[in-house]
Amino acid sequence: MRVNAGLLSQTLDQVQAAIFEPSLWLPTIEAIGRASGALGANIMEPAGRGAFGAALSTENLDDLLEGYVREEWGARDFRAQLLPPLHREGVVLEASFVSREQFDHHEYYKFMRKYGVGDSVLMNISSAKDELYFVLQNSLSEDSPPAADMPHFHAIRTRLLTAMQLARHIDASRIMGMAAAFETSNIGCIFFNRKGLVTLTNPRADALFTGDLRISRGEVRAGSAHETARFSRELKLAIQAPGQSSDTLSAVRLSRAGKRPLIVRFERFGTQLADVFSHSCAMALIEDPDEDMRLKPETLMELFDLTPAETKISLLVASGMSAVDIASRQGTGYETVRSHIRSIFQKTGTGRQSELSALFGKIHL
């Protein structure tokens, strides 16, 4: 494994483009791997105490990572011993810390050899709130990365750290704009990262979360353990299933003393490949059944040429209700509601629930 300095320099210049177009992150990571002479590259993160998982990887490591998960090496990864020097130095060559005897006989390295993988270069690209490691996997048939290439590896680390900070800052601005739009619609919203931890709430959500409802250490807590577990379970499902449409959102109810339960619906946005570089990847929209939306139906009918039935349904969709719940509430057929929603999206120039809510939030008539 030997770095092609000229190709790597060109590749690192492409990192900035991925900051503004998240779909370019995977090809950019693949290009860094090729320029470094690596078999493949991946980004790892802790999945619990002493355990690791892959946040992003190149396709040529798919078989390796499937075996890694299947045989539960994440819970006993031998490279965990490299974390202290990695935190101190930023970049470490695995071959500098693992003996020839260990490479030849340890069960972990026997497993890696089955997939043609030898030693690796590890880079600490963690931020204050996110522990992440970029790994260049060396081919078993190649010599270990030489110490002379360390400046190149530090250059990769520096560029990735800077890019990730900027990408998250840009994404955070987008998320704050969404939160403000929901606030003007009087809709509470909570945003989450790929680990399911709260990243941002708007004032409306803060006002609704009182008493037994609270956010503690980045996690939503309900008044009962059952509701807390249900919330966590549905949020996890939403995060793992990008591309949900407005009529398939998960929903949970959160009980309140003396009031009707809040209704919470989850929505995933963005792509899983870009999550590692994003501020947030999912949100919860909170409906308060005790408070109606304040927009006047006649305003919507005039602005968007909606029928009376479409107007009523549009307000329910914008408030966070799914097609299934709207059909039940209105006593209307599910397919009829879906047909109305498609017409509403077409007339308003929107394509999903969050866009409709944001649009209605800009209307003050």
Rank of each mutant, 00 (worst) to 15 (best):
S127G: 15
A128D: 11
A128T: 12
K129R: 14
D130N: 10
D130H: 15
E131F: 05
L132Q: 15
Y133H: 09
Y133M: 13
L136Q: 04
Q137M: 15
Q137V: 11
N138Y: 00
N138F: 00
N138I: 13
S139L: 06
S139D: 14
S139I: 04
L140Y: 12
L140V: 05
S141R: 10
S141Q: 09
S141Y: 06
S141E: 13
E142T: 08
E142Q: 13
D143M: 09
D143K: 09
S144Y: 15
P146N: 08
P146L: 11
A147V: 14
A148T: 15
D149Q: 09
P151I: 04
H152A: 15
H152E: 11
H154K: 11
A155Y: 00
I156Y: 03
I156M: 12
R157D: 04
T158S: 15
T158W: 12
R159Y: 00
R159M: 08
R159V: 14
R159G: 00
L160N: 02
L161D: 06
L161R: 08
L161Y: 04
L161K: 07
L161H: 08
L161I: 09
L161Q: 11
T162G: 01
T162Q: 10
T162W: 01
M164Q: 10
Q165D: 12
L166I: 14
L166P: 00
L166V: 13
A167I: 09
A167G: 08
A167Q: 02
A167C: 07
R168V: 03
R168E: 12
R168T: 03
H169M: 01
H169L: 06
I170A: 07
I170S: 02
I170V: 14
I170M: 05
A172T: 03
A172W: 04
A172P: 00
S173H: 06
S173F: 00
S173Q: 14
R174D: 07
R174K: 13
R174I: 06
I175S: 01
I175Q: 07
I175C: 10
M176N: 10
M176V: 07
M178A: 10
M178Q: 11
M178K: 08
A180T: 09
F182G: 05
F182I: 02
F182R: 01
E183A: 13
E183I: 02
E183D: 12
E183V: 03
T184S: 13
T184W: 09
T184C: 08
S185W: 01
S185A: 14
N186S: 12
I187W: 02
I187V: 10
I187Q: 14
C189M: 15
C189H: 01
I190E: 04
I190F: 05
I190C: 09
F192S: 08
F192K: 06
F192G: 07
F192Y: 14
N193I: 06
R194P: 01
G196F: 04
G196H: 03
V198C: 07
V198G: 07
T199P: 02
T199D: 04
L200F: 01
L200I: 01
L200V: 02
T201G: 06
T201E: 15
T201I: 13
N202T: 08
P203G: 07
R204W: 00
A205P: 05
A205K: 04
D206F: 01
A207M: 12
